[in-house]
Design a protein around this nucleic acid. Structure first.
Lengths: 154, 154
DNA sequence: ATAGCTGCAAAACTTTTGCAGGGGT
DNA sequence: ACCCCTGCAAAAGTTTTGCAGCTAT
C-alpha cells in the first residue's frame, strides 16, 4: 500500500475547491479531498468509472455515487474540464495550469489529441459577447480519424 | 389526418441519401424515407424521441429502434448534424442548405442559439491538417447562460 | 444542532442488440 | 434468392436518486 499520489495536488487547487464549496455553502469532506487528489494523480483523460477503480486500488474509500456527485463540483469550481468522447461518455481532465485546449478524437482508436488555438478561443469569446451569452464550458471537439486510422471508412 | 410535410424534402436530399445508401450497399426503404421526410419537417433541433412522437402523430409507422438505426445513417450521408445538448443527449438538425454553424446552449433554459463563424471553421480545418487528422464531425458547442438566464449561478 | 454528505441499491434514461419474420434489389 | 431491414422486447451502460445513518461547521 504505497501512499502515492498523496501530495500531487497543489495547495492552491485545494484552496480553489474549498473556496468554491464555501461560496456554495457546501463542505470540504474526506471523500471530496480524496477525489481531488486522485483526479490530479491522473495524467490524461479519465472517466468516472476509471476514477472509481483507481481509488479502490489505492485504498481510498468512496462510492460510485459520491464520485458522480463530486466530479461536477470539480468542474464548476474550475479545476476539471469535461470532454464528451466518441461514445458520448464524459471524460475529465484536470487543468494542468496551462491554458485551455480542445481535442481531436479518433472515432476508430478513441485516441484523444489535444490542441490549443488561442485564435479560436478569442473568436469564441467574441461570439459570446455578441450574443450577450455568458459562457461556462466550451466543447470544441473534432471527431474523425487520426493519421493512423485513416483507412477506416464511415 | 392531414398529410402535411409530405413534400418537404427536396428531391436532391432524397437523392443524396439514396446515393449514400447505395454506396454502402444499403437499401432505401419506406421507413427510411418516412424518417427522412419527418426529419426535414422539423424546424429546429430534435431528439430521437421527439421524432418518434412526431411520426406517431402523423400516422407514420416506425419503431424507436429503426429511428435510432436511421439517424446515424442520415448523419453519415451528410443530411443531418448531431449536436450534443446540455443533458448530453443527441439532438439533430437537418442541413437547411446553408453553411455549417455552431451552438450556444443555455444550461438553464436549454435554448440553443446558432452562430456561424467562418474564421473558426477555417482555423479548425487548419488544425486538422496540421495533425494529419481527417475530420468527420465538429462539436463546437458553448454551454453557459443566455442573456435571459444570466442571474442563474452555477 | 443543523445542514449537508455518504453508501448502497434501485431507478431512470438513452441507446443498442438479438431474434424471428418481412421486404427490396 | 439473397441479404438487408424492421419491430419488439430485453439488455446494456452511464448517470441519478431515495433513504437511513454519518459528519463537518
Amino acid at each position: 500500500m504505497q501512499n502515492r499520489a498523496k501530495s500531487s495536488v497543489q495547495p492552491k487547487f485545494v484552496g480553489q475547491f474549498e473556496e468554491y464549496l464555501k461560496r456554495k455553502g457546501l463542505k470540504m469532506t474526506k471523500s471530496r479531498r480524496s477525489i481531488l487528489e486522485q483526479v490530479f494523480a491522473y495524467d490524461g483523460h479519465f472517466q468516472a468509472e476509471d476514477l472509481l477503480v483507481s481509488m479502490r486500488q489505492n485504498g481510498y474509500p468512496g462510492s460510485r455515487a459520491t464520485i458522480y456527485r463530486t466530479l461536477p463540483l470539480l468542474v464548476k469550481s474550475g479545476l476539471l474540464t469535461e470532454v464528451i468522447d466518441a461514445q458520448k461518455n464524459s471524460r475529465y481532465e484536470h487543468i494542468h495550469a496551462l491554458q485551455q485546449h480542445a481535442h481531436l478524437i479518433c472515432l476508430r482508436c478513441s485516441k484523444i489529441i489535444e490542441f490549443k488555438n488561442t485564435e479560436i478561443d478569442a473568436l469564441q469569446k467574441k461570439v459570446c459577447k455578441a450574443h450577450q451569452f455568458k459562457p461556462v464550458k466550451y466543447r470544441n471537439e473534432i471527431l474523425g480519424y487520426c493519421s493512423e486510422c485513416q483507412t477506416e471508412e464511415i
